[in-house]
């Protein structure tokens, strides 16, 4: 069966009076890596919880692997893998016991479970840690145990809520490598993140969420083109109010004493500024990133 991995239409989630998700639409194709980006409280986790059938929608439509999430949670769970934000590993069990117990919930027992467990811990570079208690493992290892556990039923789709939050750079890189490997193998990946770099590297497509709504959707490249520009020039403490730059600058933003100029070519723009004798005490010339898209859409000020 082909078709969509996830289809959501006007999906809402309310907790009491708090509207966590306010009518979002998205489609996730099979075998793609799809990202939800946003700050804390944007509604990413609530959306994920609905996708992996931990909680039910308040209204709207949500289909996962062609099944209605409201009526077929067990069937959906049977075919997906989930890594939650906090790993939810059992601290009273060892790494191997965590994986084996989870296998049992999918009806995998005995020798088959032991073999699957050994294979997955090997894949996650966790040999020698089988008998370690969870508390003895580093953050990166815990995350890898959680990923191993999520793979135990050979899922078609893997749902990961902030898979690299709280990890050191090496551990984060290791998780990225794993996820890219899963994508190669044709597993649909759904993840949330607040790291733009991560989304740009991993995701085929992504949506940017804020306050329960989707602000933008597209490939990382499309989003940068649409909501930022190729390049960004950051200037410190300059007065550009009379500079005739309109032709070369697509968008201008001012935050404190930093001016952001979104443009298509930093070199040309710097030359033009030099011509106009505008000098900044310090400037940063860099390519635009999803960070800029994100901050353009949601504002640079801290919202909470």
């Amino acid at each position: 069966m082909n078709g969509l991995a996830v289809h959501a239409h006007n999906l809402c989630k309310r907790y009491g009076t708090f509207e966590a998700v306010r009518g979002i639409d998205f489609d996730i194709a099979r075998q793609e890596c799809f990202g939800f980006l946003g700050v804390n409280g944007a509604g990413k986790t609530s959306t994920m919880k609905m996708i992996y059938c931990r909680t039910t929608k308040t209204s709207g439509q949500l289909d996962v692997l062609g099944m209605d999430a409201a009526t077929h949670p067990r069937e959906i769970k049977q075919r997906i893998g989930v890594v939650t934000q906090d790993n939810a590993l059992d601290p009273e069990l060892t790494a191997a016991e965590n994986v084996m117990l989870y296998a049992a919930f999918f009806g995998i027992r005995g020798t088959a479970a032991r073999e699957r467990c050994a294979e997955l811990l090997h894949l996650m570079n966790l040999e020698g840690k089988e008998r370690s208690r969870i508390a003895e493992l580093s953050g990166g290892m815990k995350r890898r145990v959680a990923i191993a556990r999520a793979l135990v039923n050979d899922p078609e789709m893997l749902v990961l809520d902030e898979p690299t939050t709280g990890l050191d750079p090496q551990a984060r890189l290791a998780v990225w490598q794993l996820l890219l490997g899963f994508r190669e193998r044709g597993i649909t990946l759904v993840l949330t993140s607040h790291y733009m770099e991560e989304a740009a590297r991993l995701c085929d497509r992504l949506v940017i969420m804020d306050e329960g709504r989707i602000l933008a959707e597209g490939t990382p490249r499309e989003l940068i083109a649409q909501y930022a520009a190729d390049d960004v020039l950051e200037l410190h403490a300059v007065d550009l109010s009379r500079a005739p730059l309109d032709g070369s600058v697509r968008r201008r933003e001012q935050h404190g004493d930093i001016t952001y100029l979104y443009n298509d070519d930093n070199t040309a723009l710097l030359a033009r500024l030099a011509q106009l004798s505008i000098e900044s005490t310090r400037h940063v010339a860099r390519p635009a990133t999803l960070e800029d898209v994100f901050l353009n859409l949601t504002g640079r000020e801290l919202t909470d």
Partner: peptide, 14 residues
Amino acid sequence: FNGVYESMVTAPVD
């Protein structure tokens, strides 16, 4: 505290 039930309900456990 332990996320024991939390992880169970991500598997097909009611």
